[in-house]
């Protein structure tokens, strides 16, 4: 498979949120606004690309029996690095996303890609796969965040264009489930992927 195809398949055909339905916890919890969704997506992408590369490079040396714990340690190491970087350069975003940054460790997307792709492909291909899936995840989180932000607080990326409060339920828990449900339905209708 070409590198370009590896990167683009995550956007539509293997979109982690709308098609594979992986990583639901951060998807639902952090998309209260478009910015937050995008931040979470990029943070996950950072960990995904780097852990994919390291796992692909070390896979031949890791015994099969202990591979899952080894992957978890590698992922956890990158999450810790990410925590340091975010604390230093984007402290506000780190505050908002809070608990869900350390929880990238148990995000099924990251471990899923390690097991399904990185451990049997080359380092470069694994990096492309990480970028592709990461972009797909970022895109869907940003869209979900945008929808919730527009309906919930009448603004987009922080710019307020509707006076007043909006439908507050969309910023809260019920709106997260509802917005995601309808986005999946629309996505299925447009792309005809079941």
């Amino acid at each position: 498979m070409g590198k370009f195809k590896l990167i683009t398949k995550g956007l539509v055909k293997e979109n982690p949120t709308f098609v594979l339905l992986l990583g639901m916890c951060p998807t639902l919890a952090t998309t209260t606004s478009a910015m937050n969704g995008m931040g979470m997506g990029l943070a996950t992408m950072f960990v995904l690309v780097l852990s994919n590369m390291v796992i692909s490079a070390t896979a031949p040396y890791i015994p099969d029996k202990v591979r899952i714990p080894s992957y978890i340690v590698i992922i956890a190491a990158f999450v810790t690095i990410l925590q340091f970087i975010m604390q230093a350069y984007t402290p506000a975003m780190y505050e908002t996303l809070g608990l869900f940054i350390p929880l990238i460790v148990v995000n099924c997307i990251v471990l899923g890609r390690a097991e399904a792709f990185a451990n049997k492909n080359s380092v470069i291909d694994s990096a492309c796969d990480g970028i592709g899936i990461g972009l797909g995840f970022t895109m869907s989180l940003t869209i979900l965040g945008l929808v919730r932000e527009i309906l919930g607080s009448g603004s987009a990326f922080g710019f307020k264009f509707i006076e007043g409060d909006g439908i507050i339920a969309f910023v809260l828990a019920p709106g997260a489930f509802l917005a995601l449900a309808y986005l999946i339905v629309i996505f299925r209708k447009i792309t005809k992927i079941e």
């Binding site: 809260l172 828990a173 019920p174 709106g175 997260a176 489930f177 509802l178 995601l180 449900a181 309808y182 999946i184 339905v185 299925r188």
Partner: peptide
């Protein structure tokens, strides 16, 4: 999707 709509009402 229908499960998510249900979850929304439950929430």
């Amino acid at each position: 999707p229908i499960a998510l709509v249900t979850a929304s009402i439950l929430a």
